[in-house]
Amino acid sequence: MSYSDKVLDHYSHPRNVGSMDKGSTDVGTGLVGAPECGDVMKLQIKVNPETSVIEDAKFKTFGCGSAIASSSLATEWVKGKTVDEALQIKNTDIVKELSLPPVKIHCSVLAEDAIRAAIHDWKKKRETAKPETVEARS
């Protein structure tokens, strides 16, 4: 497998590695993949409740180099976006940016899933915390 320089860069210098308090209402956690499949990504976002802007993002990934790179890139991309903007990120954008070979496309799919799962988790928490806000929004 020969990787692009961007993948190698993310592998060697992963951005935003770490964990946030998953109990916090402002934090959304996405945990996707399975150890048996050789890929597990945990992506966390910290969202400003007023603006819905993702102010911080962290990840940890068990997986091959392109899985690490895909999730590292995902954290870079979601930061500063609103949750609705972040939901627009497609796995094909990640494939393009990292020049992933066809056998590694599933890594980008997993990264997209991780973003969605984190946002879903944050939304769910917010609904539980402030049910009236949800009604107003829907």
């Binding site: 592998y11 890929d39 068990f62 091959c64 180099g65 899985a67 690490i68």
Partner: peptide, 11 residues
């Protein structure tokens, strides 16, 4: 345990 083989090979 907890480390994927290909990423280890890359390292």
């Amino acid at each position: 345990a907890y480390v994927e083989g290909e990423s280890l090979l890359m390292g």
